[in-house]
Write a protein that binds this DNA or RNA. Structure first.
Lengths: 153, 153
DNA sequence: CAAGATTGAGACTTCAATCTTC
DNA sequence: GAAGATTGAAGTCTCAATCTTG
């Protein structure tokens, strides 16, 4: 056990991390909304749904991939279904469950939104990162994730 | 102009960045709530308020430091005032404005919450980062921020 | 009773509209 | 009219409670 406080460099890194996240996400959200009438949550759901090998996913599986709570996903799917972006039908063999599918409208939305979104991520985030540091950064963040998955609290 | 897509390494880095943020923030929020009955938003407001050299801040100045919208801050201050964490009084010289101050209860809350929060940030984030990479990481993120501040969209 | 999923209430954020004082 | 700040409505997230089927 060490002193609880962050040292100056940690403080700088941590505050910069938080600011980068809020700045980039804020701008990405506005860009997506204006250009494609999608929220970031809509976008993430559609990405996971359409990048899946299978044509449909169960809510629990989708929640797992998004790392969302079931309840959050359920509310989100209700809103997206209302707007015609996804479908819910009964699971073919498990009467307790459902199966989620992107509608044609959902596919069109994600196909038309993806290039602009990816371009924005590159412009807002990666333009500030030297090419040679992208791989080390990915590694560092993946190491943090690995550490996190080993602890409960 | 290049291809709009992210390459594999960028994709890895970006997804890891998002996951680290949501994982860490989710756990920090639960820790703060359970140990100190504060939300992350409460915590951030109190930090800015109590780390200020002056005893009070105007809402616009506080919003600037938090990088929050005025409206968000106003709602947040209403909730915090209701719970006795901050005070709003009329600005001494500018009749349009206000001045915000942490109450004694607010000071106690932040003093008692800060060590546990800092410890959690270190454990959840920095334990996964080699000491020699903290400074380069801070630099990298600050460079991204600098780039961001130069662009509008 | 477990698992899969939804629901409703309450807290939080955003946007546009509003109010007051300079 | 512009600046400082608040308000209300609509959308979103979390938590606990609930419903249905295995």
């Amino acid at each position: 056990v060490q002193t609880p406080w962050l040292d100056d460099t940690e403080q700088r890194a941590w505050r910069a991390f938080l600011r980068v996240h809020s700045q980039v996400m804020g701008r990405l959200a506005r860009q997506l909304q204006e250009d494609s009438d999608l929220s970031l949550a809509d976008y993430d759901v559609l990405v996971r749904l359409t990048e899946s090998a299978a044509p449909t996913l169960r809510p629990s599986e989708l929640a797992e991939r998004l790392q969302w709570e079931q309840s959050r996903l359920s509310h989100q799917l209700s809103r997206m279904e209302r707007r015609g972006l996804v479908w819910r039908h009964d699971h073919p063999s498990d009467g307790r469950g459902l199966v989620i599918e992107a509608t044609e409208r959902g596919w069109q939305a994600i196909r038309s939104a993806a290039p602009g979104h990816a371009e924005a991520v590159r412009r807002l985030f990666f333009d500030g990162v030297p090419a040679a540091e992208v791989e080390p950064l990915a590694r560092l963040l993946e190491d943090v994730l690995r550490k996190l998955s080993e602890t409960d609290d």
